[in-house]
C-alpha cells in the first residue's frame, strides 16, 4: 500500500522534474545539432552588430559634446542642445525645403516614368524590338552617380559641351546648366529618370506578366480601345505593385541619394541642392562637428522610420499588403 503511494508520489515528482530538464535539453540538443548553422550565420551577424547596431548605439553622442579623445564616457552631456541649435538655424528650413522639393519632383516625374515605360513596353508586339529597348534602358542603372553626373557635365558644360556647342552654332546664347542654381532641380530629376526609369520598370513588367489575359479578351470583345484597356485593365492589375513601390519611396523621402546630390553640389547651387545627408557630411566629416551632425542625422533617421511605418499602415488600411 504505502509502497504503491510512494511510487505514485515518485512518479508525480518525476513528471514535475522532467519538464524543465526537457526544455533545457531541447535547447542544448538544438545547439548540438545545428551549431554549424549558427557558426555559418556568425560572420554575417557580427557584421550587422558591429557596422549597423553599434552605430545605432553611437547615436548617443548626439546628446553630448563628443570629442574622440575623451570617448563617450568622458564627453560632456548636453541634452537636446544640438537639436535645438539645428532647428532654430536657417539651415533646417533650407534642408527641409530642398528635401521636400526634390522628393516631390521625384514622386511626380521619376516615379510614374517607370510605370509609363513598363506599360509602353508591354504594348510592343515585336519581341526583338522590346528586348533591344529593354537592354538599352536598363544599362544606366549600373553606372555610378559619379559617372552619370560626369557624362552630363561633359555634355552640358559651356566650355565645349556638345549641347552648348549646338546651341551656339544655331546662334543662341550658351546656357550655364551646371552653374545656374535654376537648372539644378531639372537636371537632378532628368538624371534620376535617365538612370532609374528603365530599371524601375522591371518590377512592373514582372507583375504585368501575371495579368489575366481573359480580362483583355473581354475588354476587346466589348470594343475597348488600346488606351481604354490600359486604363481599365492594365493599370488596375498592377495597382498593388504601384502601391508597394510607393510605400518604399515614401519611406525613402529623406534618402534622396547622398551620392547623386553630393556629386552635383557646388558652391553656387548649395542653396537649392544641399540635403540632410550632404549637410551631415560637410558638418561632420569636413568641419568636424561630430555631435551636431550626428543630431542632424538622427533626426533624419527617426523621421524616415516614422514615415515608413505610417505609409505601411496606410497601405494596409486601403486594403493592400504592406511591405513588411
Amino acid at each position: 500500500m504505502t509502497s504503491a503511494t510512494d511510487n505514485k508520489v515518485k512518479k508525480v515528482q518525476k513528471v514535475k522534474k522532467v519538464k524543465p530538464i526537457k526544455k533545457k535539453g531541447r535547447l542544448a540538443n538544438e545547439f548540438k545539432q545545428n551549431w554549424l548553422l549558427y557558426l555559418m550565420i556568425l560572420p554575417g551577424l557580427l557584421y550587422f552588430l558591429i557596422f549597423k547596431y553599434a552605430p545605432m548605439g553611437g547615436l548617443v553622442i548626439a546628446f553630448q559634446n563628443y570629442f574622440p579623445f575623451l570617448g563617450i564616457k568622458g564627453s560632456q552631456w548636453v541634452g537636446l542642445e544640438h537639436f535645438r541649435r539645428f532647428f532654430s538655424s536657417g539651415d533646417f528650413a533650407m534642408l527641409m525645403r530642398n528635401t521636400l522639393v526634390l522628393f516631390g519632383l521625384n514622386l511626380v516625374f521619376a516615379f510614374p516614368a517607370s510605370i509609363i515605360l513598363a506599360i509602353a513596353l508591354n504594348e510592343v508586339r515585336n519581341t526583338r524590338f522590346k528586348k533591344s529597348v529593354q537592354t538599352i534602358v536598363y544599362l544606366p542603372h549600373f553606372i555610378s552617380w559619379v559617372i552619370v553626373v560626369s557624362i552630363f557635365y561633359v555634355l552640358l558644360t559651356t566650355e565645349g559641351g556638345a549641347i552648348n556647342n549646338v546651341i551656339a552654332s544655331r546662334g543662341g546664347n550658351k546656357i550655364p546648366f551646371l552653374t545656374d542654381p535654376k537648372w539644378f532641380r531639372p537636371l537632378y530629376i532628368i538624371q534620376e529618370i535617365w538612370k532609374g526609369a528603365g530599371w524601375g520598370s522591371i518590377v512592373y513588367l514582372a507583375s504585368l506578366t501575371n495579368v489575366d489575359q481573359q480580362l483583355y479578351e473581354a475588354a476587346d470583345l466589348d470594343g475597348a480601345s488600346r488606351m481604354q484597356m490600359i486604363w481599365h485593365v492594365t493599370l488596375p492589375s498592377i495597382r498593388p505593385t504601384i502601391i508597394t513601390m510607393l510605400i518604399l519611396k515614401i519611406g525613402d523621402v529623406l534618402e534622396l541619394g547622398f551620392e547623386h546630390v553630393y556629386v552635383m553640389l557646388n558652391s553656387l547651387n548649395r542653396g537649392v541642392a544641399e540635403i540632410f545627408d550632404t549637410f551631415v557630411y560637410t558638418a561632420g566629416i569636413t568641419n568636424g562637428q561630430l555631435s551636431f551632425s550626428t543630431a542632424v542625422g538622427f533626426f533624419k533617421s527617426i523621421v524616415g522610420l516614422i514615415l515608413v511605418i505610417l505609409a505601411n499602415r496606410l497601405a494596409k488600411r486601403v486594403g493592400e499588403d504592406g511591405v513588411y
Binding site: K52, L290, S301, L305
Partner: peptide
C-alpha cells in the same frame, strides 16, 4: 531556433540606421 529574431535584426537595419557619423566613428 532564434531564426525570427535574427531575421528581424537584419530587416530592421533597412528601416533605421545610425547614420554617417556614428558609422564613421566605428
Amino acid at each position: 531556433y532564434g531564426r525570427r529574431v535574427l531575421n528581424f535584426l537584419v530587416l530592421f537595419t533597412m528601416l533605421f540606421s545610425g547614420g554617417m557619423i556614428p558609422s564613421f566613428l566605428i
